[in-house]
């Protein structure tokens, strides 16, 4: 098993059904550290369900998830996050209550670095302020990385849809993840924004962060991913390099064709 030492995430025989509907059936695959792995498939193939299982929002009926060899099933979402696993959402979920700004959102991404307490707020103010300054600088860096530093003081609701997606990404990066789960990050983006997003993903990969990407935009998937896994009706259908997946007749029948039109590989 020399190979599996490099595998940051291992999904083993995961099955999940909702009131008799099989969302996932015996799904097994691995994600290699430092790679961008795309998870594709038709609507309802169970992609988001799988992401929810991985980060502990949904318990599977059976199966195991190993992150760096550690079993995640049975762990709470917040503990899984502390291990270095972060995600974005298909439907954007930013913090908007009490006039929380864009910068506040990004700084919240650093929760696990700050672990704030009431005592810290009342009695160890100097230490808290010092940590807060460091985190604020990091947050500005993260915003600059996605190109949103100009929006730091704005309310998230004032941003365009595409920029809200970038904000979610910046917030996730603040948690210094080892593995990033991205759920349809390019949906609703225009072509120019998708272009920029591809460069961002490559830059994130260059930082050594592994990405598991659920995405429908085949141009993006074909361009950035190292490997692709295809789900169909909750079952593993195919897995391999982008070119091989594009040429796989099973995949073409179930899902693609789109591959060619979008001028993939």
């Amino acid at each position: 098993m020399a190979q599996s030492a490099e595998m940051i995430l291992r999904i083993a025989d995961v099955t999940k059904s909702f009131e008799g509907v099989h969302a996932l059936t015996d799904v097994t695959f691995e994600v290699r550290a430092g790679h961008i792995k795309a998870l594709i498939g038709p609507n309802g193939a169970g992609k988001t369900t799988l992401l929810n299982v991985i980060n502990g929002l949904l318990p599977p009926d059976i199966g195991h998830i190993y992150f760096r060899g550690q079993e995640l099933i049975g762990m709470s979402t917040d503990r899984i996050a502390l291990l270095g696993l972060s995600r974005t959402f298909q439907l954007i979920r930013l913090f908007t209550v009490n006039n929380a700004t864009v910068l506040d959102n990004v700084m919240l991404g650093a929760h696990k670095l700050l672990k704030p307490t009431i005592c810290g707020a009342l009695f160890f103010r100097r230490k808290t302020a010092r940590e807060e300054r460091v985190v604020r600088e990091q947050a500005m860096d993260a915003l600059a990385f996605v190109g949103l530093e100009w929006a730091a003081a704005m309310l998230p609701g004032a941003l365009s849809f595409g920029n809200q997606r970038l904000l979610e990404l910046a917030r996730s990066l603040m948690s210094q993840p080892e593995l990033l789960l991205l759920d349809e990050p390019a949906s609703g983006l225009n072509d120019a924004e998708v272009e920029g997003f591809m460069q961002l993903l490559s830059a994130i990969r260059a930082r050594g962060i592994t990405i598991l990407l659920v995405e429908h935009n085949m141009k993006l998937v074909m361009n950035v991913s190292d490997e692709i896994v295809v789900l169909d009706f909750g079952r593993w259908l195919a897995e391999g390099a982008p070119a091989a997946i594009c040429a796989d007749p099973k995949v073409i029948e179930a899902y693609l064709g789109a591959c060619m039109e979008n001028g993939g590989s």
Partner: peptide, 27 residues
Amino acid sequence: AVARSPFGRTLIAIHSDETAAKTFGID
């Protein structure tokens, strides 16, 4: 002081969206 501190910000995250808050390690 509490409201403006990182602790207060954490409360705002929980108020806003508990699920999202959990994915950032907030208990």
